[in-house]
Write a protein that binds this DNA or RNA. Structure first.
Length: 227
DNA sequence: GCGACAG
DNA sequence: ATCTTGTCGC
C-alpha cells in the first residue's frame, strides 16, 4: 500500500462511527520498523493551534543539527471540518497539516508530531495517520497520555518505561530532561520504537519537548494570536 | 453503567 | 487547545 493510494481514497469529514472503521482499515497499513543509518540531517516538527474564532493553524518547521534551529517553516490555516473528539484528532487536524506539507521545499529525514502515533486505542494517532500519507517516517510525541498504562520512568534524562495497552507495548514514556514530566513517544509510521526515542532525545537539546516541536508550537501559536 | 479522554 | 494564581528557581 503506497502513500498515494491511501490519500486518494478517503475523506476526512466522516461521522464518528465511520471514522473509527476507517482507522481500523488504516491501521493494517502501518509499518512499525525502520531506522536511520546515516546521521540525521533534517528533522521536522508539526503542531497546530486554534485561534479564538475557531480557525486552526498548522505549522511545520524543518530543523538542522547541531542545535536544531529552524531551516524552513511553512504554515496552513483552515476551519476544521470535524470537532475535537478524543481518538479522532487526526480527522480534524490532518487536512490542514497535509496542506502545509505540500508547501514544504526541503525534505526532512523524519517528522516529529505533537500528539500520539500508535499510542492510540486503535493505533491510529495523528502521527501515524500523517505517516500513511507521506514518504517520510513519522514519530508521535504526546505531552500527555491518551491510552495505556505505565510506571514512572527514572528521574534522569534518557530514562524511560514502556507504555502498555492490551498486553502490547505501544510506546515509551520518556524522560527527555532531568526532573521534568515525561513525554509519550510512539511510532508514527516507517520507523522502529527505539530509533524513534533516540531521535526525540537527540532533538531535546535544552527543554522537555524536541526543538522541532517547540518551534512548530511557537509558530502556530503566533499565527493563531494574529488571527 | 461509569470513568477516562492526544489536541 | 484555553482559562487561571501563586510559587519556585535561575
Amino acid at each position: 500500500m503506497s502513500a498515494i493510494d491511501v490519500q486518494t481514497l478517503h475523506p476526512f469529514d466522516l461521522p464518528p462511527k465511520d471514522a473509527i472503521q476507517m482507522q481500523r482499515w488504516l491501521a493494517e497499513r502501518v509499518v512499525t520498523t525502520g531506522r536511520f543509518k546515516k546521521k540525521l540531517k533534517l528533522v521536522a516538527g508539526v503542531d497546530c493551534s486554534p485561534s479564538p474564532g475557531g480557525v486552526l493553524h498548522a505549522s511545520i518547521v524543518v530543523c538542522e543539527p547541531p542545535d536544531w534551529d529552524v531551516l524552513e517553516e511553512v504554515h496552513a490555516s483552515a476551519t476544521p471540518r470535524m470537532p475535537y473528539i478524543p481518538g479522532l484528532l487526526s480527522f480534524r487536524e490532518l487536512p490542514i497539516v497535509l496542506e502545509a506539507m505540500r508547501r514544504l521545499k526541503t525534505r526532512p529525514d523524519v517528522i516529529l508530531v505533537d500528539g500520539q502515533g500508535l499510542a492510540h486505542p486503535r493505533r491510529m494517532g495523528l502521527a501515524t495517520h500523517l505517516g500513511l500519507h507521506i514518504d517520510v517516517p513519522t514519530i508521535g510525541v504526546g505531552k500527555s497520555r491518551l491510552c495505556g498504562t505505565h510506571g514512572e520512568p527514572g528521574p534522569e534524562s534518557g530514562e524511560w518505561t514502556p507504555l502498555m495497552d492490551k498486553g502490547r507495548r505501544i510506546g515509551l514514556v520518556v524522560r527527555t530532561r532531568d526532573e521534568v514530566k515525561p513525554v509519550y513517544v510512539s511510532v508514527g509510521n516507517n520507523v522502529g520504537l527505539l530509533p524513534a526515542a533516540r531521535v526525540v532525545l537527540a532533538t531535546c537539546t535544552r527543554f522537555r519537548l524536541p526543538n522541532p516541536i517547540r518551534h512548530a508550537d511557537r509558530m502556530s501559536r503566533a499565527l493563531a494570536r494574529m488571527a
